[in-house]
Amino acid sequence: MIKTWELDPGFKHEIMKEPGGEHLTSCYQCSTCTIGCPITEIVPSYNPRKIIQMSLLGMREEVLSNPDLWICLICQTCTARCPQDVGISDLLSAIRRIAEKDEEAGKLKIESPRPLFDTAFLHTVEKYGRLYDIGLAMEYYPKREGSFVAGQKAMMKDYMAFGMRMFFKGKMGPLGGHGLLKGVLPSKIKKTDVMKKIFKWAEEKEK
């Protein structure tokens, strides 16, 4: 049941202030987004239409703590089919960023490991200018599993066979096509100082 006195009428404005969230109020609840969504096919509870309606109503807490926020593929199918140009893919991304800010402020606990993954990914880009797969995994797995040892175990389980496959195909490691330790060592750009400036600016913009 919706308790009207618990609703946050400001929530829709909060979303609309985020880049990508601008067109929230254009939604007229036709459900085209949800009918065509490949995730809804697999996870029936997943319902972008409902997330939008709950946001419009101001159900801030329920929206931000919904675990389904984190299984969006960003595949843009909803965005492409929306007759109202709501830009649902970008809108959900805006909502996820609000959830992340709430978590940073200690107001919310996000169960999904996805923010950890995205952060670890971007840390390698900030540091080296390019994605560094191994650096990403070394940060992500221990954080997800809660300890270094558990992280290493989980990483091995997921990536031992994969890593060997890539090694023998010459895509990573000493047999690599571009150099002796391609993929093992990070590929670092020269202008990492510019990367630092970019990340600092983007972080400020998010505040």
Partner: peptide
């Protein structure tokens, strides 16, 4: 020359995407 990562799907902040790709 000296290209940098585009931010892929992991950069959810469009401002970060714009700055990375502007370079």
């Amino acid at each position: 020359e000296d290209w940098n990562c585009c931010g892929a799907a992991e950069a959810e902040n469009p401002m970060l995407v714009y700055a990375l790709n502007a370079r």
